[in-house]
Design a protein around this nucleic acid. Structure first.
Length: 156
DNA sequence: GCCAACGTTGGC
DNA sequence: GCCAACGTTGGC
């Protein structure tokens, strides 16, 4: 199993939104960056766990854990002219953009702030610290364990 | 709201 | 294929 970090602006879609979904799943659509797209298309697998990160707020932080329930498939919002992420280059034959589905797994007892992550030398290599704009990032298993510890998760 | 970082676009 | 211009992200 691999670990990931997905970023979202809580004003757009928050962890509480995921938690409150009746069907428990969410299309992770709207990713329009090629490197992030490649992860979604090629590397994110069913059962992978995801750190849910809230960005663009006064105290950016990892707030919870989600699980991948469907692997990369065409992001249909790219073909919807009404959608804000519409891309005229996307077609049925060549979707260009991909998404996955995730479901709520667990809320962190304590959120792990970006400030705390930056203050931990063992997390200094996370893309979040030095490539903060990448919206889908791989997380190493030792980084994952450290964040679980910082977030107060006992068994993971 | 500012601005640095950086990804994308497009002219050549 | 280079690179300047431009747009977006996201921390602060």
């Amino acid at each position: 199993m691999n670990y990931w970090l997905f970023k979202t602006e809580p004003g757009c879609f928050s962890f509480d939104d995921l938690k409150s979904r009746v069907d428990m799943t969410e299309h992770w659509d709207g990713v329009r960056n090629f490197q992030a797209r490649n992860f979604l298309r090629d590397s994110v697998k069913i059962g992978d766990h995801v750190l849910f990160y809230h960005s663009n707020i006064p105290q950016p932080a990892i707030v919870g854990i989600a699980e991948v329930v469907r692997e990369g498939y065409a992001d249909f919002t790219a073909r919807d002219p009404e959608n804000e992420h519409f891309d005229p280059k996307a077609s049925t034959e060549n979707p260009v953009w991909y998404m996955v589905d995730v479901r709520y797994l667990q809320e962190l007892p304590k959120e792990v702030t970006l400030e705390a992550i930056k203050g931990n030398p063992l997390l200094a290599n996370m893309p979040l610290v030095n490539r903060s704009r990448l919206s889908i990032q791989p997380v190493k298993s030792d980084e994952w364990r450290m964040i679980m510890a910082m977030g107060g998760v006992v068994n993971d």
